Structures are given as C-alpha cells and as structure tokens.
Computed example of a mutant assay.
Amino acid sequence: MTTPLNFAASDPEAFISKLYREAARVPPNEYRVWALEQLSRVIDFDAAFWGSGNSADIHFHYVCHIGLDEHYAHHLQKTLSINPIRDAVINNLGKPVNMQDVIADEDFYQSQLYRQLFQPYGIERILAAGYFDQDNGLYSLISLYRFERQQVFTEQERHLQERLVFHLVNAASHAFFLHLHAGNVLHTKKHAASAICDLNGCFHEVQPRFVTLLNEYFPNRSSVTLPFAMGKDNSTVQINNLAVSFKAQGELMTVTLRLPGPLDLLSQREAQIVEWVCKGLTFKEVARQLDVAPSTVSNHLYRIYDKIGINSRSELAQLVDSHRQV
C-alpha cells in the first residue's frame, strides 16, 4: 500500500494549503491526478477514481484515476444499477460512505457487483464521496480503494475525507480559473467570457458573463451543457450571432464567447492572408505560400480593407491586435 509521508495525516492543513498554492503550477488537465497523488499522502489508499458528469443522469463525462486502467470508468458506469453505494452517496453528498456500512462483508464479497467490478481490479475496500456543484451543475464522485481486505477504512479516515473532498473539488476549480487568467484567455473586454467544458459540453468552470451570454442568445438552453456542438481545437465559428472559439486543454476544452468583430466577416483564405501580412510577410512571400501571383494577394488585401472598413496596414495591425485581446 501507499506509504504516508510526513505532512499527511499529521497535518491536513498543509495538504489543503498545497492544493491551492500549487494550483497555478500544475497544468489544469493534470491537476486532478496530481491532487489524488497528494491525497494518498493524507489517506492511505492503493487506487482512486475521480469522475464528473451531469447530475441528472450521473454519467461520467470526465474521469481521472490512479492505480486503475482506462476501462474502469466504463465498468463502473455499467454496474451503477447494482451498486448499493450509489444511492447512499447521492443521498449523503459531501459525506463519504464506507461500503461496509452499506452492505455486510459476507454479502458484498459474494455479490455480482464484487465479482464483476471490484474483484478483477483487486479492490477490497471502498470509501466513496459525492459532491454537487450548484454553479456548474456537475456531480463529482471521488472514490478511494484498498487492495487488502483487512485494511478497513476507519471512521477517522472517513471524517478526514469528508473535510478534504470539499477542498479537492474547489481547488480543482481554482486551478482552472488560474489557468484561464495566466493563459491570457480571460481579458478585460466586457463582451468576452470563457468556460471550461468536457467534450460532451458539460461545464466544469464557467465565468458569470459566459452564463449571461448563453441566457441571452440561447434562451431555451439546458442549464448544464453547451447549447451547441463542440468545435475543433483552435477554431472560431459564429453561432446565434456570437463568435464562439474553442481551445483544447487536454481532454477538456476552453470555450470563449464574444460579440463578433469586423475580422469575423473574413473568409478562411482572407483571414490567412491577414495573419501573414501582420506577421510582416511581403506580397511576394504571401503569394508563394498560396501559390498565386502577388497581384492576387494585393487584390485580396484591398477587398479585405473594404470589407472591414479600414484603409491601411497599420489600421489592420491595430484591429488584429485588439481582436486577439478578446
């Protein structure tokens, strides 16, 4: 089993402090695994699962784990209907549930659930906690597992997890928002706002302005998912008179909403020409990139000027610079 380190059970305050202190240093798509590894220094366990999803159906759209394989989430989902700890966790959100308090050992180790889900992974003891975030509509499950049957989770460890699960979830939220600020995604422009979603469109972190824009432009939307399909990485599309940008963050996606600007009127080819011109390429250099004559590039550029209402490269550069800040 995992060997506890010094700052573990003797000082949970140090663990909590580290969760928030290191949030800006750990990449957001790695933060949950990192946090579980830190938790293993506080509560001794062999494997752990952290899944999040829509609270309405408790389907896990985003999962991470340590000591398990990539198929575990699927097996867990398939056996939820026969898992007695499920209802106990849902009915006691924020309070960890010990499997042995839900079902007697002699019944558990003879059960279909044990044979199908836990025994193949060597899991003998389970301590699970659910958490519901009213701001983003996400349900999170954090389960700790031990491989030795005689190593039961104690009441002291259950109370400790109860205290720490709040900080795990909120520190993960804190880490995402720090990343948004540090990555220059959130700007001072009042008409732009961002959210971090999984690939199914479920919210993980949401700026209040993002919700305001969704309510205004998608009045009939669901409250827990994006009202449009997830786009490709580094793409921008117009939906319901909003410019919607997508940027991948590991298995998650940063989605930014803003009111369209003049550059959003450009075609893909025109936007490409603008990018190269603003990088300092000459008409000849751009022409070589596109395999066209320099005069064609010149004609494209002047049509771009006319389309967005400017008259010079300096105005174009200023417009592009302001566009990048939204």
Rank of each mutant, 00 (worst) to 15 (best):
I304T: 01
V326E: 13
Q268I: 15
Q268C: 14
K95S: 03
P294D: 07
G250M: 01
L117Y: 03
Y72G: 01
G261C: 05
A171T: 06
V320E: 04
D87E: 15
E270L: 03
L144R: 01
N170E: 14
Y139H: 09
E270C: 06
Q100E: 14
L117C: 09
E162C: 02
N29S: 12
A73N: 07
D57F: 09
K284W: 04
S314R: 12
E315P: 11
V286R: 04
F176Y: 14
G53R: 05
N220M: 13
T282Y: 00
F210W: 07
G280F: 09
I239V: 10
N29T: 12
N83C: 10
D198G: 08
L265G: 08
S10V: 13
R324S: 07
I304W: 01
Y217H: 12
N241A: 13
D133Q: 13
F210G: 07
L36G: 01
F7G: 02
V320T: 05
G67W: 03
H191I: 05
R313I: 15
N241C: 14
I142C: 10
G94T: 08
S143Q: 01
A47V: 00
I304E: 01
Q100M: 15
A243V: 04
I82K: 08
I90G: 07
D321P: 08
V320G: 00
V274M: 05
T2C: 08
F60E: 07
T2Q: 12
Y305L: 02
E30R: 14
G137M: 11
L257F: 10
S245E: 09
E285P: 00
S55Q: 10
P219T: 10
L257T: 02
V297W: 09
H75T: 05
R288T: 14
L226P: 05
E216D: 11
V326D: 12
P208L: 08
L93H: 02
Y145H: 01
V63Q: 06
W34G: 05
Y72M: 02
T79E: 14
G130K: 04
R25Q: 13
F166M: 11
I239A: 06
P227F: 02
E37Q: 14
D46P: 02
T79M: 14
P120G: 02
F118G: 05
F176G: 15
S140W: 13
D306V: 08
P12R: 09
H71R: 15
L259R: 13
Q161R: 11
N184V: 06
E270G: 05
K18V: 03
H181R: 15
T154R: 03
N6M: 09
P4A: 04
F228H: 05
V255M: 10
K190V: 04
I123Q: 00
E106W: 03
E275W: 15
I90F: 03
E157A: 00
A73F: 06
A293Y: 13
C278E: 11
Y145K: 11
N241M: 11
Y72S: 06
